[in-house]
Design a protein around this nucleic acid. Structure first.
Lengths: 123, 123
DNA sequence: CTAATATATGAATGATTGCTCAGGTATTTG
DNA sequence: CAAATACCTGAGCAATCATTCATATATTAG
């Protein structure tokens, strides 16, 4: 019984897995859990319309928290929470000028992701 | 009082928005709600480690539902739900051969998104 | 036709997530 | 120094989501 793969559910796909070698190869090529998790959280940061609108706005140049709150029509507190999340994943960075913090996209990857994602969504 | 922007919260950022013209420009360049929503859902489909592992596995070639369930160690039902979501956003496509459905990435955009995202997550 | 296999799907449920509220920190002004 | 402004953050609540369970559909075998 060396071909079998354990499945979790009660409606498991019989006893056999159809392509054992293909599954094994996928296992070898798989990313480690920590990387997978960070990648998932990165995409997750872009999975909300409000946050996405925020990031797209920043792709047009830097903005302060007040500007973003006004633009998104949400409270500065909400914006700040979202910015913290984006910051945590290095999607945006900030620069202080007096009391004002100006946010912008962290690097070109971010604009690239937006472009590619949009190209796919529109096709 | 033509410079003011309404904000939603009670701790609203004073009465004034700092860069009115910048906010106005962002408004002009903004995507329409439906597009934004679809884009958000597209990224959302990639925001779960299990689904991400699934999609990355498919980037190495097509796999059937059974294979994926075995590889991910979740029930075929759970995989099927996830595949439906990915299918709905045209991230994966399927081809039937007898009773077996083989899934693969829908187009190059998808692999591109994974690559770009990974490059960012690893930097 | 009936039985078996592979996959799909609706409903229910526990876990995440977005927002608000109520504070707290950092910077400038007087 | 104290007051004001811009922003941050922890806790709590409502909505969303991933999974399970039960059932339904599609294809092949007999």
């Amino acid at each position: 019984m060396e071909n079998q793969q354990e499945t979790a559910g009660p409606d498991l796909c019989g006893v056999r897995c159809i392509h054992t070698e293909r599954v094994a190869r996928a296992g070898e090529e798989a990313l480690e859990a920590a990387t997978l998790d960070r990648l998932a959280r990165t995409f997750g940061a872009l999975s909300d319309p409000t946050r996405l609108k925020l990031v797209m706005a920043l792709s047009g140049g830097e903005m302060c928290v007040c500007d973003l709150a006004a633009f998104l029509k949400v409270s500065p507190s909400a914006v700040s929470h979202q910015l913290a999340r984006l910051r945590d994943l290095c999607l945006v960075k900030r620069r202080r000028q007096g009391q004002v913090l100006y946010y912008s996209l962290d690097d070109e990857h971010v604009a690239g992701l937006l472009e590619l994602g949009l190209a796919h969504a529109l096709e």
